[in-house]
């Protein structure tokens, strides 16, 4: 990555695509309380995405606002990590994604809150508080499902195995960025290890580390997500909503 624009856009896209996926659970969650909780987290991610996209647009200086960046870029221009674009699959996969994402976002936003860029620092300070809740929520479900029934244990382990390889991309080194993601890996490991252990789950030992999202090379899933998200906005060029 290169400079604060790319970095800000990557964070923004992580949050935006995570929000879009989480919002897909609305009316489908296993409990009504969970429907509300997932919508809350989606709203937090969407809120962070909007702040970050707006700032990215300012850094770029080409007159693109949050909607231009969200709705008028193609998949090759998105900079989110692959983790967030993966389909929701079952509730265990969604919770694995949420837990790992929050365990990355919390230390990242915390570090961001102390960085030299005042705008990013303010966004980090706000988002950090929300990430604390996301992490609690994700960790609680990982434990409940891991140490719940035989069926839920089987599903949660499968979910962790499926999602784990995608976590490595989150920590790709970027020494020039306001916060180098590589520096938050220890904080991630410190949180994730004990939760998986308490959940009676095995931390995968896979060398496979798919990546490419930060360079705009995504999975096949992202283009479908964007096609749905952008269809109405693009059907009415220039319209106000």
């Amino acid at each position: 990555m290169n400079g604060p624009f790319d970095f800000t856009l990557a964070l923004a896209d992580d949050a935006l695509i995570a929000a879009q996926r989480l919002a897909e659970w609305t009316t489908r969650a296993p409990e009504m309380e969970e429907d509300i909780a997932l919508a809350n987290i989606a709203l937090d991610q969407l809120g962070a995405a909007r702040l970050l996209l707006s700032y990215a647009g300012e850094l770029e200086g080409a007159g693109r606002d949050e909607d231009a960046l969200a709705y008028l870029r193609d998949d090759r221009e998105f900079r989110n990590a692959l983790l967030v674009e993966l389909p929701n699959d079952d509730f265990a996969v969604t919770m694995a994604k949420l837990f790992f994402l929050a365990a990355y976002q919390l230390p990242l936003y915390t570090a961001l809150a102390g960085c030299a860029d005042e705008r990013l620092a303010a966004i980090g300070a706000k988002a950090r508080k929300e990430s604390t809740y996301h992490l609690d929520h994700g960790a609680l479900w990982v434990k409940r499902l891991g140490d719940g029934t035989e069926e839920s244990h089987r599903r949660m382990q499968a979910a962790v195995d499926q999602v784990w390889p995608y976590t490595h991309e989150l920590f790709a080194a970027d020494p020039a960025a306001p916060v180098d993601p590589a520096t938050v890996r220890p904080a991630f490991d410190e949180v994730v290890g004990p939760v998986l252990a308490e959940a009676t789950l095995t931390q995968p030992d896979s060398a496979w580390a798919p990546a490419g999202g930060r360079a705009g090379v995504h999975t096949e899933h992202l283009a479908y997500l964007l096609a749905e998200m952008q269809v109405l906005h693009r059907a009415h060029p220039g319209a106000k909503w």
């Binding site: 919002a23 609305t26 709203l43 269809v231 906005h233 909503w241």
Partner: peptide, 22 residues
């Protein structure tokens, strides 16, 4: 929700549907 035409509208609609669950 998934197709809301602006991010602001998406946030408002998501919050509204969430209110209904509440």
């Amino acid at each position: 929700i998934s197709r809301a035409p602006s991010l602001k509208r998406k946030a408002i609609l998501l919050a509204k549907v969430q209110d209904e669950a509440g």
